[in-house]
Design a protein around this nucleic acid. Sequence first.
DNA 1: AATGAATGAGGGTTCATTCAT
DNA 2: TATGAATGAACCCTCATTCAT
Lengths: 201, 201, 201, 201
Amino acid sequence: MARKVGSTGAETAQRVREAALELFARSGYAAVSMRAIAAEIGVQAGAIYNHFPTKQDLLKELLTGHMETLIAAWRAVEQPDLKPPQALEAFVRFHIRYHLDRSREVFISYMELRNLEDENFGQIEQLRRDYERIPWTILENGSADGSFDIIDPQVTTMAMIAMLTGMTTWYRDSGRLSLDEIEAIYIRLVARMVRGRKRSL
Amino acid sequence: MARKVGSTGAETAQRVREAALELFARSGYAAVSMRAIAAEIGVQAGAIYNHFPTKQDLLKELLTGHMETLIAAWRAVEQPDLKPPQALEAFVRFHIRYHLDRSREVFISYMELRNLEDENFGQIEQLRRDYERIPWTILENGSADGSFDIIDPQVTTMAMIAMLTGMTTWYRDSGRLSLDEIEAIYIRLVARMVRGRKRSL
Amino acid sequence: MARKVGSTGAETAQRVREAALELFARSGYAAVSMRAIAAEIGVQAGAIYNHFPTKQDLLKELLTGHMETLIAAWRAVEQPDLKPPQALEAFVRFHIRYHLDRSREVFISYMELRNLEDENFGQIEQLRRDYERIPWTILENGSADGSFDIIDPQVTTMAMIAMLTGMTTWYRDSGRLSLDEIEAIYIRLVARMVRGRKRSL
Amino acid sequence: MARKVGSTGAETAQRVREAALELFARSGYAAVSMRAIAAEIGVQAGAIYNHFPTKQDLLKELLTGHMETLIAAWRAVEQPDLKPPQALEAFVRFHIRYHLDRSREVFISYMELRNLEDENFGQIEQLRRDYERIPWTILENGSADGSFDIIDPQVTTMAMIAMLTGMTTWYRDSGRLSLDEIEAIYIRLVARMVRGRKRSL
DNA sequence: AATGAATGAGGGTTCATTCAT
DNA sequence: TATGAATGAACCCTCATTCAT
């Protein structure tokens, strides 16, 4: 059969991405079949191959897309002139909000790395290191100019990212605390980790 | 063919557990076949079914086994008379050491929960909540007796666990810092989160 | 590989049906593998699943197809105005000829009922009862109008059907008697069972 | 483990036979596993092999056992001096009663012949022909001495056996007619087939 | 005589992928 | 661009059978 009226290639590709994202996040890459993705958007499995050469490419595109968008999103909001305390707070806010809005992308970014073939894996790892360098640089700067008292910038960076990202696994809209409240708590926790004071962070 | 000379059921079951643990951690539950597990220990796939009724049961046993052993291990080392600062330090040391020794178990405990069927999932979730109550109780106690100044016990608990557990994803024996050094850093970071002082924590 | 040039789904489905019929009749449902059916028609086992969702569905379709075709075939040849003796003779001729032409369908209809799951089983049972009602009605009519002297219409119906159908298990083209001769004998036997006379049956 | 207290080889073999008979009749030879038979009598599958060399041998023994017992049972009750009409009535009574009591054996005798390997198959076929010769001889004798008016002894024999045996597929203890009543009806039907009269059969 | 652990083969079914249409 | 039919490999699991114990 020919293309459905009104559908375009770009549209279909986008719907495939969205369906794959949802299903990979819910069940895991290995447990999701191309047929399941296709069924989710009402096409046959074969149709996906007009847009993505293999299932692996689909995963890779989701992961690189996420990392690139993440970094680009930070570049869009970052204010290079901020002092380290303010820069750190901005980063924490950004990270929490961004990751909560993309919890599926975050989840598969951590979970499905091992399902990437070597070359693709290396590419994502590099992007991740690029992103981790953002808070690490802020911590280094704050350490250098005396605004922070940091035990170890690298360990603190990793600890902080793990702490912040972990929120996506337990945060619920209907929970005891609002997102604003949780965000405020996390900002204070980070401040303590770098021995800042809330007012001065 | 019949049983190999000298083999016993308990031994084989244990070797299956170990191989499955390793492979699930490396590639993920869905991506590991029963044949692959069997090959790892030099038997045919069918032999596994003498010891585990299904692949799902094998996963479930690994996960419940891990959580139960984890909790039991804490019970074995905990000193109920410790003041909160000392109790918290003991918990941090325990958690880091235990999780680093069992990074594979930790990894699949977080990764493969979604591959558990509903009933099994609920069982594990309960065990996890049981474990999380341990540091949460310490924080509550320390908050009550004034040894800690905690922003929010629940959020702090989750943040702390995420931070500590995250170490398993990046720690390497050959890294810049020794385990002792990293442990010391994490203890100080936790101390800051509860606004203790290192000397008094 | 993709579809072979010139192949269509309907064709393949029909070839699967024919191969399954032959093999089920020869070896029994449980003893025939999907791979064996596929090999018979020169495709891979997986291809069958494009046309039948499960092996059980394939069996069910053969059995319901047979019963429905059987009943439809009778409806096509029956002459409602015939007197009971002529109607009974017409039915006997029909049953013998039809069942001999479809000895494989007949065989699996009797043999493989137990391999049907409950719902499918019930459906076939109903169709069978529908068919049995045909001769039973003729006997009842002939009993009512005095053309037959029947001991018990229900038992006679079952006895007659068993007797006629049994022929498919021993009839051979190369046997002592031709089909016409056997048919004539069976008509006379039935006539005796209802105490008709050959000339008046 | 050693033998259970009180069990003997002969006992176990008999329990295997009984369990296999029941399960083969219910589900068919190919669909019943050695494990299922073993479970039915509370032993492990391996134990069966102390009593029967293969699954095929088990089936063969059931079938030959049935046919031999059937023929021996007839030999035990037959009265060689009876006139054909009385002999035929005696045979009908015997066949109905015997087959109804052994409906499972009868069923698998007809169903599972095809699951026998060639040599075993031939053996059973011979026994069946031996049994069929019993009514056939009675009909021949009655034909010869004028007590019967038979259309064709061979076809009549097959028709009669099919008719009588078919009863096992629909008879229910709780049905409309008692076994005695059904038996009486069948005797009259057979009498009509050989053109005897009830009183003279 | 029975268990329990194992084999090697094969079961039904699903899968990623291909390609004629 | 999409379908639908096909492949060939793989999957989980079960099987008949064997044999050390």
